[in-house]
Computed example of a mutant assay.
Amino acid sequence: MRFLLREPLVHFLALTGLLFLLHNAVVGEDATLDNERRIVVDRDALLTFIQYRTREFELEQAEAELAGLTEAELQQVIDSYVSEQALAREARALGLDRTDYIITRRLVQSLEFIARGMADADSEPTTEEITAYYSANPEEFFVKPRVSFAHVFFSGEDRGSDEAMSLAQSALEKLRAEDIAISDGARFGERFLYGANFVNRSGGYIVKQFG
């Protein structure tokens, strides 16, 4: 045994094993930390995020909203989602989910809502009850309007605003009379750099684009 302990090969193997265990311990901690910090962004997460941000809890509507985003708009939504998730994790790390009264009340309200839904699942409301609830809570049923249109552009820079308005009015009458599809509307006007077809867009989005 003493002979083996004096062998350089034994020393080398022992040192190698120690380094291997140390490496696994360090890498394992880093991997765990990376997993805790990782924020997964997938389609389902973005759909849920969009529904809560717009307060329109309709999956098809959220899917249409997501599909209609430009690359820049999609990146903005992703950035907002990641930022929200990071802040939520930081809040939980600080214990705000346990010490902040507002958050506590939100959790209680969520549980009460679920419990009330389970309790009412077996009882079908009457027409009068539905009407009364709708009248008392109209904001819960409000759906923000959305529009689809083609932006047929006429510049007033060279011809003046009056002539541009006249051309636009004539084009509008022609589009309506011939029932031109939105996808074909832009060809009746002049080239516009910032988009021509707007499908299923909210009022806020339109204001942001056109002022």
Rank of each mutant, 00 (worst) to 15 (best):
I102Y: 11
I206T: 14
A62S: 13
R6D: 03
L111F: 09
V40C: 02
S170K: 14
E7M: 11
R146F: 04
A93K: 09
R37V: 00
I103V: 04
E60F: 09
A119H: 03
L15T: 08
L175Y: 09
L33W: 00
R116Q: 12
A91Y: 03
I180M: 05
S202D: 03
E157P: 02
F141T: 05
D30M: 09
D179P: 04
L87C: 03
E36C: 05
L193S: 12
F12D: 08
F153D: 04
Q85K: 09
F3A: 07
L46R: 09
S148I: 08
S80W: 08
G17E: 06
K144G: 14
D100P: 03
F210L: 11
Y133Q: 03
D162H: 13
T99R: 07
A88G: 02
L193C: 01
A31T: 00
F192K: 06
D30A: 07
I180A: 12
R37M: 06
F12Q: 12
I182R: 05
Q51Y: 10
D179A: 13
R38H: 03
A196F: 11
K208M: 14
E73V: 07
S183P: 01
L19A: 12
S80I: 02
Y194E: 11
F142I: 06
G195Y: 01
L69M: 12
L33M: 00
P145M: 15
Q75N: 13
G95M: 08
Y81E: 13
P8A: 03
L175D: 10
G160C: 15
T99N: 04
G95I: 00
I130L: 15
E56H: 12
R43Y: 13
I103N: 04
P138F: 00
I78T: 06
Y134P: 00
E140F: 15
D122M: 10
E190M: 01
S135K: 12
P125R: 02
L15Q: 13
G156L: 03
N197C: 10
N197W: 00
A25Q: 07
A62Y: 08
V152F: 02
A93E: 05
F113I: 04
H23V: 04
E36S: 03
L47R: 11
A150G: 14
P8C: 02
L69E: 05
A62D: 08
R2Y: 03
I39K: 02
V82M: 07
Q51M: 15
A62Q: 07
G195W: 01
F113R: 13
H11G: 14
F153H: 15
G68A: 02
P138N: 01
D120L: 15
A164Q: 11
K144I: 10
L96K: 02
N35W: 06
L111C: 04
E112L: 15
Y52W: 07
Q75D: 13
A136K: 08
T32Y: 05
V26D: 02
I180T: 14
G28V: 00
Q75M: 11
I103T: 09
P138I: 00
R116A: 14
D120Y: 07
Y52P: 03
T104E: 07
Q109P: 03
G160I: 08
T131Q: 10
V108R: 13
E56A: 13
F153S: 07
